[in-house]
Amino acid sequence: MGLKQQRIEEHHITIEPFYLPLGSEIDIGLAAYGRQLPLLLKGPTGCGKTRFMHYLAWRLKRPLITVSCHDDLSTSDLVGRYLIKGSDTIWADGPLTRAVRAGGICYLDEIVEARKDTTVVIHPLGDDRRELPIDKRGEILRAPAEFMLAVSYNPGYQSVLKDLKPSTRQRFVSLNFSYPDPEREALIVVRESGIDEGFANRLVKLGAMTRGLKESGLPEGASTRLLIQTALLVQNGIEIKKACNAGIVQSLSDDSDIIEALGEMVEAVF
């Protein structure tokens, strides 16, 4: 089939991902890596957290192992477990263990979605001990200098119950991400989708307008990612307003009033 299978710890990012820095996050990220400190990225959905990690992995030339957290993620899912294959019992490393062994970057996306008893497993890795205890094998894995732990979460998400525990939070160097300013956001949209600048500017204007509805029933406005996707639709020949409807309006809400208002914004901007 021509598909190349790769072990996740060998997954190096070879082509430079496009990342436009909005502040000193790259410097801080590199400094944290140099000093072996874990990284916490916070910010709304689609604002570039994951892209930043890709960029950092490329800069550092380390494999990036991403785990999307969910509320059934157990410690074994991260660390590893015994599996029985035929008549043998074999140990299979989890993604976190693999990352530690390979000296890669382990990126736990949406960490708050994971159960609290699961998140504590990263505690010894997250401080100066930099160790990963593997209880079932009775061993402690010491992380090499190349290993980095990074987690992300969206603070505007869900209820107070889904907040990070202070004991977890206070191990990290934190980077706050938000949507870029209009000029830079337009630049990103142009770079990612290849549309012309004038159109990107208007798309960004529309994005900013949807973010203004925060207090009016739309908790999260259009992310940069949505704008890029819409621009891609337009690049493929979809009529602008239809692309905005499919790419932004309908993706943001099901509420008829909000859809109507977003439609009006599209009409006003394009």
Binding site: A208, M209, T210, R211, G212, L213, E215, S216, G217, D257, I258, E260, A261, L262, E264, M265, A268
Partner: peptide, 11 residues
């Protein structure tokens, strides 16, 4: 929806 629209314009 006019008020939602203007909220969007105003931010």
């Amino acid at each position: 929806h006019l008020s939602l629209f203007v909220s969007g314009v105003a931010g």
